[in-house]
């Protein structure tokens, strides 16, 4: 009999991350990394007080957690599988921990910070 894979756990997080990345990331990257620094958006748009109060409410907390954590799971999953595609098999377990460990930290850190804000 074949052994049941634990992939469903990582694949679900990958899928959720892929959805968030597709539906939000292009605009989010444009806003934070291009429009604001180049002055297309006024500096007040992402001012400290505004974002801090956004992060104080539950919808804001959920949004921030989702856009930080889920894309990291998507990215970790693809990078880990790509190593296999590229024929890199050395240190496979180390790479697994590094990829998914980063995603796990990227979930726990914002989770704790957002609860405390």
């Amino acid at each position: 009999m074949m052994k049941r894979s634990n992939e469903p756990v990582f694949w679900s997080l990958f899928g959720a991350g892929g959805v968030v990345a597709a539906f939000l990331l292009p605009m989010l990257i444009f806003i934070t990394g291009i429009a604001l620094p180049l002055g297309i958006l006024p500096p007040e748009a992402l001012a400290y007080d505004r974002i801090h109060s956004f992060a104080s409410g539950w919808p804001g907390k959920l949004f921030l957690l989702a856009v930080i954590s889920l894309p990291l799971w998507q990215s970790a999953h693809r990078i880990f599988l790509s190593l296999h595609d590229l024929g890199i098999h050395r240190g496979r377990e180390f790479c697994r921990w590094l990829c998914y460990g980063t995603a796990l930290l990227g979930t726990l850190i914002p989770l704790i910070l957002l609860i405390r804000i």
Partner: peptide
């Protein structure tokens, strides 16, 4: 489903 659920099943696909 036992074959589907395995690493050698659908989870070998990217």
């Amino acid at each position: 489903m036992q074959i589907v659920n395995a690493e050698e099943g659908v989870w070998g696909c990217t």
